[in-house]
Amino acid sequence: MKFTLCVWRQLNSDEPGSMVSYEVDGVSEDMSFLEVLDLLNENLVVRGEEPIAFDHDCREGICGMCALVINGVPHGPEPVTTACQLHMRKFTDGQTITVEPWRAAAFPVIRDLVVDRRSLDRVIQAGGFVSVNTGSAPDANALPISKDAADRAFEAAACIGCGACVAACPNASASLFVAAKVAQFAALPQGQPERLQRAIHLVEAMDREGFGGCTNHYECEAVCPKGIPVSFIAHLNRDFLKAALMSREVRDVPPAVEAEE
């Protein structure tokens, strides 16, 4: 198979970028989309050009590192599939394929298709956890948790933090990401003590990082490689409303400090 790849090239966060076209020949339908980029990069290197930078690591759909908008859709045309699990048999020979990075103010481009997603980490640092020190846990079976609640928590916890929800959202909102974290712990007894504070802190952190707000387009759900539903966002809203009306104090979270390079 042969393809024309239209790829976003950008040297670094300061320089402007542009779409550049490349021909790739000798592609087999068993290759993954990232392997086509590998092949293209190998050709570029041999020609003495710098390869296209793109994030990838596990290549089995779980680390959340790959982040490509392929033909206008984050993670490409296959539903519930990360870009690394996308295979070329899903494309037609000779097709032109556009490849762009996630686009959001909170995800500045580092180079080519690589963006800085530490904003998502900082959101979690604001309270996306259960505060429990090592060694202070009671026996694992001390608190029974209904299977239903455990399954719901799992469904929310399946988030791989790739940021496709942000990339797809017309508002570049991280609501689905935040909601999944809030809902995971809200479903479990271990998450209850910090439940309302967590909802507030995560939402405030999301705003601080420059993500947009949710206006219920549900594009996030459509591209989420783990199929996380928007009903979790409703859950987040519910917890937030409850927190706004009923919590007695709102603890301040110290602003995130970036480690020096």
């Binding site: 779409m19 908008v69 859709v73 686009r103 103010a105 508002n171 947009g212 387009h217």
Partner: peptide, 28 residues
């Protein structure tokens, strides 16, 4: 909200295909 949402995506996609967004939500 709309202003904040616009700010959240300063650079637009050269190609973007909506998957689920409804006509009504898009032109709200």
């Amino acid at each position: 909200l709309t202003k904040a949402n616009r700010r959240a995506r300063p650079v637009r996609y050269s190609r973007r295909v909506a998957r689920q967004m409804s006509f009504t939500s898009r032109y709200m």
